[in-house]
């Protein structure tokens, strides 16, 4: 039996249909960590699916070779149908999946290393220009707009403007710092590097684009939830508004712009947690999804 069509179909469904289903669901904002895990599971599943599709299309068997030629035909590529060369096909069957794997790992490493370099240069400058506040556990920079961000990773820093320290109440300030602390403690920069890497390799797949955008938003929600454990909803929401309103509006950067509004409404809205049954089944799905391509490729029943 030829698994190639099933694999290609599965991979296409994960890459092109699944993101829209997930975007339309209403539970991800109630369980952001779980949703981030599902986006990652889909990305892993897609990568496996793509690699196995390539392998099975190139498999050194007559009918499979025909399958690949047929697919290329369908894509508008006309290849001269010569005799199938089993050796080249075998090399392709190993080479293409390996190339996908190497590209993903290399891209992840590249993003992590580059981000670390940028951050350490930035941290060095922040240490020179800013004043470390032991009370806030943060570095204060003279800047006349309330703003805060963090430099995660090794030797992390929370950077906050002196305007934020002046204008926000201690409670609001605490909520902001706790939010940034959550990014650092959760190593959110590595999660972002994963989806960035996936996006650099599969740029044209909707799953990659949405996984990147949604993961960024979900990580903010995770950090918000962490801040809400010890601070009031009003404090976090007001701090969020004060900081967002002070920033210069910029039309071009619309992609993430709406996230502040979504987050604020979520923070102010009634607290809803995902139902345990839903949570359990989604978690089980997140664990299974990466393995599905393997099941499709080698159905156990067929040995």
């Amino acid at each position: 039996m030829n698994a190639a069509p099933a694999l290609v179909g599965y991979t296409a469904a994960v890459g092109f249909a699944a993101p829209y289903l997930l975007l339309r669901a209403d539970w991800p904002h109630r369980a952001p960590a779980l949703a981030a895990a599902v986006w990652h599971a889909l990305a892993v599943s897609f990568s496996f699916g793509a690699a196995l599709s390539a392998a099975s299309l190139a498999m050194p068997a007559e009918h499979l070779h025909a399958g690949m030629v047929g697919l290329l035909h369908a894509c508008g590529l006309d290849v001269g149908v010569g005799r199938p060369d089993p050796e080249i096909a075998a090399r392709l069957a190993v080479g293409v999946p390996a190339a996908i794997g190497i590209a993903l790992v290399a891209s992840f490493a590249f993003h992590v290393v580059r981000a670390r370099r940028v951050r350490s240069e930035h941290r060095e400058a922040v240490d020179l220009v800013g004043r470390h506040s032991a009370r806030l556990c943060a570095t204060v920079l003279p800047y006349d707009t309330p703003a805060a961000y963090c430099l995660p990773g090794r030797d992390p820093r929370i950077v906050i403007s002196d305007a934020a320290v002046r204008h926000l109440t201690p409670e609001q300030l605490g909520a902001v710092l706790e939010h940034e602390q959550a990014h650092i403690a959760g190593r959110h920069h590595l999660v972002l590097a994963t989806v960035e890497a996936f996006y650099s390799v599969f740029r044209w797949v909707p799953l990659a684009r949405h996984a990147r955008e949604q993961t960024a938003l979900l990580l903010e929600m995770i950090a918000d939830d962490r801040a809400l454990r010890s601070h009031s909803h009003e404090a976090l929401a007001t701090a969020m508004y004060e900081m967002a309103a002070a920033r210069t509006p910029k039309g071009a950067l619309a992609a993430g712009g709406q996230s502040a509004l979504i987050r604020l409404k979520r923070v102010l809205g009634p607290r809803k947690t995902a139902h345990p049954a839903l949570w359990g089944s989604v978690a089980a799905a997140a664990l299974t999804v990466p393995l599905l391509p393997l099941l499709v490729a080698c159905p156990p029943g067929l040995g």
């Binding site: 993003h111 580059r114 981000a115 940028v118 951050r119 930035h122 703003a147 805060a148 961000y149 963090c150 430099l151 995660p152 902001v176 939010h179 940034e180 990014h183 959110h188 920069h189 972002l192 590097a193 960035e196 960024a216 990580l219 903010e220 969020m240 900081m243 967002a244 920033r247 210069t248 509006p249 910029k250 039309g251 950067l253 619309a254 993430g256 712009g257 709406q258 996230s259 502040a260 509004l261 987050r263």
Partner: peptide, 15 residues
């Protein structure tokens, strides 16, 4: 984007 995480991102006037 990849390097740092800002507390809030830019918003339009309507937002």
């Amino acid at each position: 984007r990849a390097a740092l995480v800002a507390f809030v991102e830019n918003m339009s006037d309507e937002e």
